[in-house]
Simulated scan of single mutants.
Amino acid sequence: MVEEAPPDPGPRRFGNASFRKWHALLGERVDGLLKEYLSPQVMEFGQAQRTEGADQAASAGGPIVELRAYFLGAFGSSQRLDYGTGHELSFLAFLGCLWKLRAFEDGPEEGDIERSIVLGVIEPYLKVIRRLILTYTLEPAGSHGVWGLDDHSFIPYIFGSAQLTRPISEDEPMPTEGSVAGAPRPSDVVKSTVVDLNRGRNMYFSAIGFINDVKKGPFWEHSPILFDISGIKDGWGKINKGMIKMYNAEVLSKFPVVQHFPFGSLFSWDADPEAAPPVQSVHMANQPMAAAATSSWGHATAMPGNNPGSGGGGIPYSRAPWAAGAGGNAPAGPPARGGKPDTGPPPPSSFPAGQSGTTSAQFSVTKAPWAK
């Protein structure tokens, strides 16, 4: 389909308008694709084994209505010519719908199907997305700048760090430290040779490799959050746990993301009477209009215990490792964690702290919340 909708020639700052042609082709063919590759049992809601919400969806035209919406939403916006974590979330919802409709059958060992979905479906999906981004120069959707983990994606860092976490038995909880034997060190993400060696077999390094393909300059400069994470000494288990917490706070709990998420019968909107009231995140508090943002949508939800003085674990943001001095002046010597990248200039010796509620606050480099 990319070959059927070649990009318009000539340089341009924003997305290539031919992406609209590509997305239109997808819209024309989505029903045929779903009917071709999904079994009749799934398309008819299983008949014999209906999941919760099946009757409601069947009466509304069957699951194809909801499957179509999530699938089309997973490949960027043809209107804004962008792609971001909200579109990525839509693809997860598409797979979640298929899971609820019993489209997947497990293998002889427990966990086989989960691994097959991650490595055989999600990673190829990300490769398609990266080709779309490069072909049509899709803009990041709602990029957080220095607050963001990645311009476009998040889930490869969750699954990629899980690949490198130490093995566990069925009755063990998710590990909070340690790595699988022979795993590359977290600090190796700044080494292009190590990234190239591992990007074909690990989703974390595959995502880092794509960043290196599209961005130039020192890694700490264009990806400060990922650079800070690279200094974690407790292994990939801690990184994986932190990534899950950060995804909850920065994607699932952010109104700019979920405002575009459609709810239906398979993923319904249900109020949680025990949910804690939302608190303003540090990212929102540091925006220029933060002082005037008093409406409920201006207070994005943070993780429980993240509000000041609560004493909870939370994931508060702080400054970059080289900007830890008072007033933004860095202490003498190298950064406390992560080390210096093997190429490019060193981190700045000082960094303006910025004042909350003003534009100067946008120039404060943040730090991974769990990289302690």
Rank of each mutant, 00 (worst) to 15 (best):
Q355C: 06
G148S: 14
I64A: 03
W99G: 00
N16Q: 09
V282T: 08
E109M: 04
A302C: 06
N306T: 09
L119W: 04
G120T: 08
Y317E: 02
A93M: 14
S90F: 14
P347N: 08
G354T: 09
G309K: 03
G339V: 12
V282P: 00
F14H: 09
M243H: 02
V180F: 12
K127W: 10
K127R: 10
P304H: 08
T176M: 09
R337F: 08
Y70R: 00
R115P: 03
P277I: 07
G231M: 09
K100A: 12
G312K: 13
G312P: 11
G325Y: 07
L126I: 14
A330S: 14
D228F: 14
I64S: 13
W370S: 11
A93C: 14
W322R: 14
G264W: 10
W370E: 15
M43R: 11
R130V: 01
L126D: 01
P218E: 15
E250G: 00
P9L: 05
L132C: 11
H144D: 00
N286D: 11
H299T: 11
A292Y: 12
G242K: 02
F267N: 04
S153T: 15
I225K: 07
A17R: 12
Q41G: 12
A290W: 10
D188V: 11
K21P: 02
S77L: 05
G311E: 05
A368C: 10
A58I: 09
T51D: 05
D228N: 12
K35M: 05
S153N: 13
S318P: 01
S143P: 00
E250Q: 10
L138I: 04
A276S: 15
G96V: 15
G145Y: 07
K238A: 12
G120W: 04
I239M: 10
S18K: 07
F210K: 00
M1I: 04
R102N: 14
D31H: 11
L98T: 09
A330R: 15
I211H: 05
G325S: 15
A330I: 02
F210C: 01
E170Q: 02
G62I: 09
D213W: 03
P262G: 09
M303S: 03
G298L: 03
F71K: 00
P186G: 04
P334I: 09
V121W: 04
D272K: 11
Y125H: 08
W269F: 15
F159D: 00
Y70M: 10
P304I: 08
S230W: 14
D196R: 15
G62T: 08
A162S: 07
F91I: 06
D31P: 02
P352T: 07
H283D: 00
R166G: 13
S90K: 01
T137L: 11
A271E: 06
S265H: 13
S143G: 13
H260Q: 10
